[in-house]
Amino acid sequence: MRKNDLLLIVAMAILGVLAYFFFLSGKKQSNIVLVVRRDRQVIRRIELQKVRTRTKLPIPVDDGELIIGYNQDGAWVESSPCPDKVCVRQGKITRPGETIACVPEKILLTLTGTEKENDHDAILR
């Protein structure tokens, strides 16, 4: 172990902490929106606050069907036809900024706080 190694490790640790505060410091909010995208298109937008029960949402994808689960405090991938199942094993996301990506099936789940959504008066396509 050399001095440079230590400096590198410390720099990485600082970067990690900064990245944490930058991307994931969003406080537990009551009105979180689950945004589901398939191939970049937003296909569902669900206000988790209004969700009463554990819900399963099947989404048709190239290899079959990917099932998303969500309840009042978060979302997860219940099952997926993709080969590696990274998305399923990632478990539940509960905070704004958190993401689950299933790259093979091009599905992206993100949680956003509601303030962010109100930035735009309208979105023109």
Partner: peptide, 16 residues
């Protein structure tokens, strides 16, 4: 591949 920047939120845990 996903055309999104939201994957950067994986960065802290990946560094850790």
């Amino acid at each position: 591949l996903m055309r999104t920047t939201s994957l950067l939120s994986y960065l802290p845990i990946l560094i850790a």
